[in-house]
């Protein structure tokens, strides 16, 4: 036994020594892209909406890219940590970020983050777009948005939001401004606790992307949608748009999920980016993907194969909104 241990030990040492002498560059030859798994940074926590959507898309994407994906989650500081770490990762098209354009562009605008969209980071392909919604738990006394607004004129009504730098928060602030209602935004840091606060009645209502109340089924009642028209009347009890219900003229507030790469990748590896875009678009129309989205409880109407131009235009429009509401969102 002792001899065996001794031999095993020496074999191990020999293997390690051999490894040390072998030069690394010999192993790192450039093979066909992608030559390994794709690393995906998610700037929110595991188990959140981004995680759900990313898992659904990569499951089918693997078919076209012939590679699997690995995820890392960085939920810190409203996504800032994820963005900054992503910028430090290898810029060769093997590292992508799965972003939520709305809240994250607002975060980049409002927080002191050394990243400029377009110059440092580019959203190359949208995957889905959904409007923001106001909703209440099933046990809430509010049946319509009008009732909520009327009450908010009498007393500050509490609204759970995922975070202050978020299109849903901007929507509530804009609605308050337009109607004279007072909404007290309570940021719970993530979709799940935000939803829980509305369901258990800790707050009066909640403002989140529309997929959240829809996936909650009978636990949630949608009161209004920040869009020009309700894209999914069947799944929202035919909820009105906010403008219809409140007689306002607010812009549509949406957020898109999109893949992003470092800007340098576009210059240095344009063919890789093209391959990524092409395969993502193929995935988005694949019936398997449509089925996976439906299975996760998310309306298939939200699938949006918007290209780089559309994604960057949305980012620019969101940045403008963030600047407008800067003071209210930063507490300055």
């Amino acid at each position: 036994m002792k001899n065996f241990v001794r031999n095993a030990g020496f074999t191990a040492i020999a293997a390690m020594a051999l490894a040390t002498y072998l030069s690394v560059p010999a192993l790192a030859q450039d093979t066909d892209y992608p030559d390994g798994n794709i690393s995906i940074t998610i700037p929110t926590g595991e188990g959140g909406g981004a995680d759900r959507d990313a898992r659904a898309i990569t499951k089918v994407w693997a078919k076209y890219l012939e590679r699997n994906s690995e995820f890392s989650y960085y939920p810190g500081a409203a996504g800032q940590v994820g963005y900054e770490f992503f910028m430090k990762s290898k810029a060769d098209g093997t590292h992508l970020m799965f972003s939520n354009i709305g809240p994250e562009v607002i975060m980049l605008e409002l927080q002191d983050v050394p990243i400029t969209i377009g110059e440092d980071l580019v959203y190359i392909q949208k995957t889905s777009t959904e409007p923001m919604a106001i909703w209440v738990g099933a046990n809430s006394k509010f049946e319509t948005l009008q009732q909520l607004i009327e009450e908010a004129k009498e007393r500050p009504v509490t609204i759970s939001v995922s975070r202050l730098p978020h299109p849903a928060s901007i929507g509530m602030l804009a609605l308050g401004e337009a109607t004279g209602a007072e909404f007290n935004l309570i940021p719970y840091g993530g979709g799940n606790p935000t939803a829980m606060a509305a369901i258990t009645g800790e707050v009066d209502a909640s403002a989140l992307p529309l997929a959240n109340p829809i996936t909650l089924g009978p636990e949630a009642r949608v009161l209004g949608i920040f869009a020009d028209e309700n894209p999914v009347p069947d799944q929202t009890g035919n909820a009105p748009t906010v403008n219809e219900a409140a007689g306002t003229d607010l812009p549509a507030l949406t957020s898109s999920r999109a893949f992003a790469v470092q800007a340098s990748v576009l210059e240095e590896y344009p063919e890789r980016v093209e391959l990524l875009k092409k395969t993502i678009r193929e995935t988005l129309v694949d019936p398997d993907y449509v089925a996976a989205v439906a299975a996760a409880g998310v309306p298939v109407e939200f699938i949006d194969p918007g290209d780089q131009e559309a994604a960057m235009a949305e980012a620019a429009a969101t940045a403008e909104l963030a600047t407008k509401y800067r003071d209210l969102l930063t507490g300055e």
């Binding site: 926590g45 595991e46 188990g47 995680d51 759900r52 659904a56 996976a292």
Partner: peptide, 14 residues
């Protein structure tokens, strides 16, 4: 967090 990861599996399987 553990329950959140379990939820992903449930959603993944529809």
């Amino acid at each position: 967090s553990t329950a959140a990861v379990m939820m992903i599996v449930l959603q993944f399987h529809g």
